[in-house]
Computed example of a mutant assay.
Amino acid sequence: MSNVSQVAKESVTEIGRGVYIASLLPSATIVLSLYALIASHLYPWAKPIAQGGARPSTVSPGIASIVHTTTSAGPIGYVLLVLGIAVGAFLLRPFQVSVVQFLEGYWTGALLRGLPAALAIERHRRIWSVNDARRRASAAKAQSSEFEEVAAFAARAAAADRIKRRGIRVVARYPGQSAWILPTLLGNHLRRAETTAGERYGLKTVITYPRLRPHLSDPVDRAIAARLAVIDNSSMYFFIFGFEATVTGPLLARLDGWSLISPMFCALAGLCYRGARVAARAYGLALATAYDLHRFDMLKALHLRLPGNLEEERDANEELSRFLEEDPMSLLPPAAWDAYEHEGSEQSATEARSASQSGAPSGP
């Protein structure tokens, strides 16, 4: 079995039922909605379906037209509809990663990478800088002990505290540095998670997480995977509902109850995006938890000495991150690697010395 096939098999095994949610339902939603829109004859330019017989009549647009079109197609129509859903599931699956990357703000192409991306980034940088200043705000002290002055100071202190807490909440949505800000809020949530989880201990998250993941406990690993699955699925459904809002846009010209379909899809797309943002913040917490609990397991697997305090840990981890980030052939190992820490090595050395002194063989 090739490496690509092995990776695909392991991915499907890990996702499990999520494969059907991430692939089948989105494609079914698109195919069935497009079929329903065309068969309903609700578009302003569509003509009603004419029925023959003794008393010729027309089928009213909407559900009646969908039922009439479906029943008229017969078994062949059902087979084609099922095939359309299956083909849609096959074609949409590879685009899921691209959809998530687009919502994160990794825009490609000259049209998006230029002015739109610059304007979006500048907007988020302004929000970040304003709230970064707000979280440092403090009320002016009272000038005297008079009741009016003390009461005014209490009101100013309460207002400053509200502003400060709001600034802290907003800044917590963004990366630690303005240079890392992305065009979208979802991307900034994920960028913050990927630049703070291990960095608190001197470890670069993006570089060291592949070495950390094999040592995660099952609850932490499942929590991270579950939040990533929610982000992927929410992003995919955001794209689908946005597409549905676009294709149903012409129904606004009807000025009747069917005109509410497009705004409804817009609201659903907004809810999906909000859900992806909430999952992204929860993912950041889960990722930070992984480093809080299992970073020493990674160091033990690398046979490195465990640090004695936080300052020593940060210095050693920064050196380790630089070594893992660079080409190992062009960078000397960290100073902490001058001697490895093997589990049980001291006990084995003691037993060997005792055996040599007694004249007994030290091994087979």
Rank of each mutant, 00 (worst) to 15 (best):
A139G: 09
P48Y: 15
G249V: 03
V230Q: 13
I261T: 07
S345P: 02
F243K: 00
L287Y: 01
A225C: 05
L310G: 00
A28P: 00
I207T: 09
T29I: 13
A139N: 09
I49W: 05
R274P: 02
I224G: 00
E244G: 14
Q96I: 15
A197H: 00
A225K: 14
R274Q: 08
A139R: 04
G114Y: 02
V59F: 07
P361D: 11
F241I: 06
S354L: 15
L81D: 12
L182K: 14
T108I: 13
M298V: 04
M329K: 13
R314P: 00
S217L: 07
L302G: 01
E311W: 12
A159M: 11
H215I: 00
V230G: 04
T289N: 08
L80C: 10
L271I: 14
L212C: 00
A117Q: 10
V220M: 11
L332P: 11
T248K: 08
R134I: 08
P61L: 07
C272V: 02
L115K: 11
I76K: 09
R156L: 10
L25R: 10
L331Q: 07
G249H: 11
R173P: 02
H41N: 12
G249S: 11
L252T: 11
Y35T: 14
D232K: 04
P26A: 04
A229K: 09
S362V: 12
I163Y: 05
L310P: 03
Q101F: 00
L228G: 12
T13P: 02
N3V: 07
S330K: 10
D315A: 13
S235E: 11
H303R: 15
I127Q: 05
E313D: 12
S145I: 04
P307L: 11
A336L: 09
L25W: 10
A352M: 10
V150P: 00
T13M: 12
A193Y: 04
S98K: 13
R222N: 11
R322M: 09
F95L: 10
P328K: 05
A197Y: 02
L81I: 12
V150E: 15
H342Y: 12
P26L: 11
L186V: 08
S356D: 13
H124Y: 13
F296D: 13
M236F: 03
Y78L: 14
P214V: 02
A64V: 06
H342L: 14
Y340N: 07
W180M: 11
D297V: 00
L271V: 14
F239I: 04
E311D: 13
Y283M: 01
H68G: 00
S348E: 14
Y20S: 08
L331R: 15
T58Q: 15
S11P: 08
M298S: 01
F147E: 12
A158L: 03
I76W: 12
M1N: 14
S358V: 03
N188Q: 12
A158F: 01
Q51G: 10
S321Y: 08
G109C: 01
W107Y: 07
L37D: 07
A36T: 06
W128F: 15
A64P: 06
R281M: 10
V12A: 15
G359R: 06
R277Y: 01
S33G: 08
R134D: 15
T29S: 13
G62L: 03
Y209L: 04
G16C: 06
